[in-house]
Design a protein around this nucleic acid. Structure first.
Lengths: 334, 334
DNA sequence: CTGAAAGCGCTTACAG
DNA sequence: CTGAAAGCGCTTACAG
């Protein structure tokens, strides 16, 4: 491995000069610079980011932990973070928690040990506040993404009440009275918020308190069983709202299994939606969150906090848009 | 930031001892160890992986670059690498090239500067051999994943000839004579191999040389146009094989647009397939590669090379399995 | 069983 | 315009 010493020797200058040429931190005579550049070339020297980071106590890198990079919404957020990080000139270290608090903790640990300048975290479902306490200790800047917290953290996610209200209105105005909300794991803040908003919206629409149809469960099997049971009721729901891609898949499976046709037998709407969604028949009404924006904003927020640690924490909520499609009776686009 | 010096002072020992307690590198009296552990606890000390790595000239981390972590096959490979890396106790630094050689080069650069112990690379479509030359210079161990190369590198991918042969036989035995292969970008080694195998298989099946139906193009629009044109021919194909998920999506779009029904109007088979594939109607015959295994094997190969740089490079090809479904006339599973 | 000290490859005042 | 030297936080022979 070539080091600056070798380069300096070859160029006949001091390592100070090599360093300054490399980083543009002070003026260097053009002739001298050329010699250095040539030596760098010849030795195929590559700066050691570790040594540099140690000296500067700053790594110019940030960490991003998501629960599942394969899900379309997260994949898009990752792209947003990547883009903004590239713009800032910092490298991104990516990690998956696979929705497992232990793996999340390990990822946090690994990133902290590598002295990233900050971390963006979309917390795993069962992750307690413990993970967050770590950051206080280390005072490493943290931005929560997608899955927010009630404490005053820097965080960016989406509006959840509004789209639920809109969807409920959209459906009730078509005459739907029994709407099933597939919530899943309410330990996930996003889902919890949608759940609450739904209860209120349905009450406002005249459904007696406690009579709202919802499927709340942590585990995939129980969720499917819950949906199945709901659809098999004497008075089954005439509409379904799924709160995420995975939940939509579970619901669609049951809908197909019962041979229900959308939207005639049952109306269907979902948050997030699928990759290659245009292949679905019928097209699904979808609450599309500005996932790329969420990611990019998270990276911006993090940069601001890294620059100024005494900043007031801010919570950003971006507004999703609802794409009405055939699954809730909207006309199929040409 | 707490350092070992502070911990040592608090525990009343030398930094050597703190280091050895931390790493278990030499025996420490139980009493002494307890004092150190307590001091670590009280100061919420966290080892600095950078300093440690610099001293040991080994980071215990590896890099993984894929072209699109959102695609199901890659998502699965990532999981395989993650799992095996965790088993080895090394941290994984993940990066997306978004199928862009420039971003790939930047990612390689960033990882090399961070002195990862080795890199696993699924090369971007247009990436020349230049990217690979870098590694020779730095003699950082490299394993190619999925998209292989002809040079003697450590690499792991899948068999491509066999499944093409099988599929062609499966289809021709059902009487299909005009089969369309959607190849896409032949700069991707995997696709190139499937292309060649198809030509040969079709020749073997009696199709005159040069008369095979294929769509070869680099850009998504041209691919769709090519498929559209093929389907509109006077004698259109009666079967389609798509060589990847993205290509399958393009083909399915055209099939739907023409109102063709599978398998009656057209038989359909694809490599890789979709997330939530069970929701597709009809279910698609799919060449499923052991993606998790591919990732895990890549990580194993890398570990071996890191341990012994003079090892002979080895190429591993894992065998995909074909899941026959309704889209090529197989009976729908109960 | 433990400590003092060199050194990993850089950056950055300090000096000229 | 450039160089000599301290020091970032560790690991690891060396010595006792």
């Amino acid at each position: 491995m070539t080091t600056m010493v070798k380069v300096a020797k070859l160029a006949g200058v001091s390592i100070s000069t090599v360093s300054h040429v490399l980083n543009g931190t002070r003026h260097v005579n053009d002739e001298t610079r050329q010699k250095v550049l040539k030596a760098i070339e010849e030795t195929s020297y590559r700066q050691d980011a570790l040594a540099r980071a140690m000296r500067r106590s700053r790594t110019d890198s940030i960490g991003l932990i998501v629960s599942d990079g394969g899900e379309p919404a997260f994949a898009e957020m990752i792209r947003g973070v990547e883009e903004e990080a590239a713009r800032q000139g910092v490298t991104l270290l990516l990690a998956n928690s696979a929705e497992d608090p232990q793996r999340e903790a390990r990822a946090v640990q690994a990133l902290l040990e590598r002295r990233v300048d900050g971390i963006i975290l979309a917390r795993a479902a069962g992750s307690g506040p413990g993970a967050l306490a770590e950051f206080q200790d280390q005072d490493t800047p943290l931005v929560l993404m997608d899955r927010l917290f009630d404490e005053p953290y820097d965080q960016v996610g989406v509006e959840n009440r509004e789209p639920i209200n809109e969807l409920v209105q959209h459906l009730t105005s078509q005459g739907h009275e029994r709407i099933l909300l597939v919530v899943g794991d309410v330990r996930v803040a996003t889902l919890q918020e949608r759940h609450e908003a739904f209860i209120e919206a349905m009450e406002a629409a005249g459904t007696p308190a406690g009579k709202q149809l919802t499927v709340v469960a942590e585990d995939q099997q129980k969720i499917e069983a819950g949906i199945s049971k709901a659809l098999a009721a004497v008075k089954p729901p005439t509409a379904v709202i799924a709160c995420s891609t995975v939940l939509a898949a579970a619901a669609l499976r049951q809908v197909q299994q019962r041979g229900l046709r959308m939207p005639d037998d049952i109306a269907f709407a979902t948050f997030d939606g699928f990759a290659y969604a245009d292949l679905f028949e019928p097209q699904l009404t979808t609450v599309r969150q500005p996932a790329f924006q969420v990611g990019a904003t998270a990276a911006e927020l993090l940069a601001k906090r890294i620059a100024d640690k005494s900043r007031e924490p801010s919570t950003v909520r971006l507004a999703p848009t609802i794409e009405y499609r055939a699954s809730t009776g909207a006309p199929t686009p040409a």
